[in-house]
């Protein structure tokens, strides 16, 4: 990818489209029982991660919670590797060992995919601590939902981040619901961004349905942190169109509310902006959309035809450098030990 400051908006729009189409296909494949476990879709929130990625360098660190497909795709993880991960295949971005909630891609500086709410915010502190320790100007983007802000680990991490002046952008993707509990029912504050004030961290509110607003605010923050390491907090107001996970019909909200946000769709919005400015034609948009659909369909084929890890390989992933003692070989029902390949 090219230097982010100049990243083409049309390219970013196609990235949002890719995420949208990927999630739609993932939903279909989940219903077809090709995907196991839990599956949380990012549809509606695309402008948040794409706007953020458009504002940082490729070597900046990104870490997020369990609604992570969009973050990996935005970071440059291939749709093939993402879909294969959902299918539990060895070609997945975590070799099929992490699943939907645990996408990792070290090469693209995507540090997970973390499924215990709030538990990755201290990890972000550690990553940023390492940047500061090594005197690098790398920035850590830590994404989390509105549900994370009432978790102890979040508060402990924010205090540490502020205390040690760590270069972290804390990005709260406020989609109004922690599972089925609305922010109003979960949080004593009038607005989430006020959490930051409690730790003396500068905070902003951003419209997460507007790609340009996300990118511009993040760019401003990132430029400031690059000059002098410090934390920042952004509450990005967004909306997920689907339920919390695949099993959630989202009966806790109204059709009218959903419809209101759909009309404010981040993809439609950026498309309209670009069209108005003469930077995008309808034909071009349709071509991008077609390409996104094809890419995603190809990823399903790739995932389907990919192999799974052999069962006995599981022992190689408990410890770096393999099993630490021989007992597992003798446990009842354990497979015969095969030569290491």
């Amino acid at each position: 990818m090219q230097p982010v400051e100049q990243r083409d908006e049309v390219e970013m729009l196609s990235l949002m489209l890719l995420i949208r189409r990927f999630e739609e296909r993932a939903s279909q494949q989940y219903q077809a029982q090709k995907i196991g476990g839990f599956c949380h879709l990012y549809i509606g929130q695309e402008a948040v991660v794409v706007g953020a990625v458009a504002a940082v360098r490729d070597d900046d660190y990104i870490i997020t919670a369990y609604r992570d497909h969009g973050h990996a795709l935005a970071r440059g993880t291939s749709p093939n590797a993402c879909m294969a991960e959902l299918f539990g295949k060895a070609t997945g971005c975590s070799q099929g060992l992490g699943g939907s909630m645990h996408f990792f891609d070290k090469k693209n500086h995507m540090y997970g995919g973390h499924a215990i709410v709030g538990a990755h915010v201290p990890l972000a502190a550690g990553m940023a601590f390492a940047s500061k320790y090594r005197e690098e100007d790398r920035i850590t983007l830590c994404f989390f939902g509105d549900g994370a802000i009432n978790q102890g680990s979040f508060h402990e991490a924010l205090n540490l981040i502020a205390l040690y002046k760590l270069p972290v952008v804390l990005i709260c993707e406020n989609n109004l619901f922690a599972m089925g509990t609305s922010v109003k029912r979960s949080t004593s504050l009038k607005q989430i961004v006020d959490r930051a004030e409690g730790y003396d961290i500068p905070g902003d509110i951003v419209d997460g349905m507007n790609f340009r607003e996300v990118r511009d605010k993040l760019s401003e923050i990132v430029t400031s942190i690059r000059k002098d390491p410090h934390p920042a907090f952004v509450e990005i107001r967004t909306y997920r169109y689907r339920g919390h996970s695949m099993s959630d019909p989202a009966s806790y909200r109204t059709k009218e509310e959903l419809e209101k946000y759909r009309l404010d769709d981040p993809i439609i919005r950026l498309r309209a902006q670009l069209t108005r400015e003469g930077k995008l034609t309808n034909e071009q948009f349709d071509a991008f959309d077609k390409k996104a659909k094809e890419t995603v369909l190809a990823s399903v084929k790739f995932a389907e035809s990919s192999p799974e890890l052999p069962v006995e390989k599981v022992y190689n992933y408990a410890y770096f450098k393999g099993p630490i003692e021989p007992e597992w070989k003798r446990r009842e029902g354990a497979p015969a030990l095969k030569a290491e390949s």
Partner: peptide, 12 residues
């Protein structure tokens, strides 16, 4: 908080 900070620092 600081145990998690350690884990994050070890990741990188």
């Amino acid at each position: 908080g600081f145990a998690g900070l350690g884990v994050g620092a070890a990741m990188v």
